[in-house]
Design a protein around this nucleic acid. Structure first.
Length: 259
DNA sequence: TGGTCGGCGATTTTTACTTCA
DNA sequence: GGTGAAGTAAAAATCGCCGAC
C-alpha cells in the first residue's frame, strides 16, 4: 500500500473531523518530474504528436498504464532515482513539462481484452494472492498495483449490486407484508362485525374459509380464530388477543410438534 | 506491542458519452 | 448538420482506517 502524502490536506482541514469525513483539497500540481523519466513517458506513450485519445484508439494494447497517475510517478521517482535532484528549468522546458504533466495525469482505460481477462479471473477468485497478482500483471502488461485496484473496485461494484438486489428483495417483501397486513385487518373487521351481530353460529362457520385449515398430522380443524374462540366465554372477546395464533394454527413453515 | 500488509469505504479524478444551444 | 460547452455515468485511482498476522 502506498501511504505517501498523507498530510497533503493541510493542517487546517485535518482538525476536529474524522479523517474519512474531511473533504480533500485539490492537490497542488505534482512535483516536477525527472527529465529522463518524463521524456520517455510522454513520447513512449502517446508519441510526440498524437493526443492521448488518439493513442488509445490507435493502439489498444499500448501500455499507457505504466505511468498513469501522479502517485505512480512519485513512487517511480523513488524507485528509480532514490533521491530528488533539483532540475534546472527554463522556459523551453516548462511547456514540455506541462505537456508531460498532463500526459502523466492521464488515467488508464483498460482494453476490452484486459477487462475480459480480469473478469475471468475475478469469476474464479474475487481476491488474488501476491503471486497471482504478479502473474496477471505480467500477462496483461499492467502493474500489480493496477490489478489490485481493479479487483478492489470490482469487489466494490459487486457488493453494490448485491446491495441493490437485496434492497429490491426487501422492498418487495415489505410490499407483500403490507398487503397481507391490510387483508388481515379487513378480515378482522369482518369477524368482529359478525361477532357483534346475531347469535353466534357454530364456531367454524364464523371463520372465512381461508382461515380454516386442517392440520395434516392430527386432522383437526385449525383457524386464526379458534384459539380465541376457545375462550369465547371469557372476557377476551374483541381484545387484542382475539387473533392470537394457537398451537393448532397451521403454519406451513413451522408446524407444531404438539399435534 | 509496534510494524507490515491487504481489504474496505469514501472520495477524487479522468474518460467517454449525451444533450443542448 | 456541425460544433463546442455543460452535464453525467462509469471506471481508475487515491486516501485513511482497520484487522490479521
Amino acid at each position: 500500500m502506498e501511504k505517501e502524502d498523507s498530510c497533503d490536506t493541510g493542517l487546517s482541514l485535518g482538525l476536529g473531523l474524522p479523517a474519512n469525513l474531511r473533504r480533500r483539497q485539490p492537490k497542488p500540481p505534482p512535483p516536477p518530474l525527472e527529465p529522463s523519466l518524463t521524456l520517455s513517458l510522454s513520447e513512449e506513450i502517446y508519441g510526440s504528436t498524437t493526443t492521448p485519445k488518439e493513442a488509445r484508439l490507435s493502439s489498444p494494447h499500448s501500455t499507457i498504464s505504466s505511468f498513469s497517475t501522479t502517485n505512480y510517478i512519485k513512487k517511480e521517482k523513488l524507485d528509480v532515482g532514490g533521491e530528488e535532484t533539483e532540475v534546472e528549468r527554463g522556459s523551453s522546458l516548462r511547456s514540455r513539462e506541462e505537456d508531460d504533466e498532463a500526459a502523466a495525469r492521464k488515467k488508464l482505460r483498460l482494453t476490452k481484452e484486459q477487462s475480459a481477462l480480469l473478469e475471468d479471473r475475478f469469476k474464479e477468485h474475487s481476491t488474488l494472492n501476491p503471486k497471482q497478482k504478479q502473474t496477471l500483471a505480467k500477462q496483461l502488461n499492467l502493474r500489480a498495483r493496477q490489478i489490485e485496484v481493479w479487483f478492489q473496485n470490482r469487489r466494490a461494484r459487486t457488493k453494490l449490486k448485491q446491495t441493490e438486489v437485496d434492497c429490491e428483495f426487501l422492498r418487495r417483501c415489505c410490499e407483500t407484508l403490507t398487503e397481507e397486513n391490510r387483508r388481515l385487518q379487513k378480515e378482522l373487521q369482518e369477524l368482529r362485525a359478525i361477532k357483534f351481530s346475531a347469535p353466534p353460529p357454530p364456531l367454524f362457520m364464523q371463520l372465512p374459509a381461508a382461515t380454516l385449515m386442517v392440520c395434516p398430522s392430527c386432522e383437526r380443524i385449525a383457524g386464526a380464530g379458534v384459539g380465541a374462540a376457545n375462550k369465547a366465554d371469557g372476557k377476551d372477546i374483541g381484545g387484542g388477543s382475539f387473533m392470537k395464533p394457537t398451537q393448532h394454527l397451521f403454519n406451513p413453515f413451522a408446524h407444531s410438534a404438539t399435534c
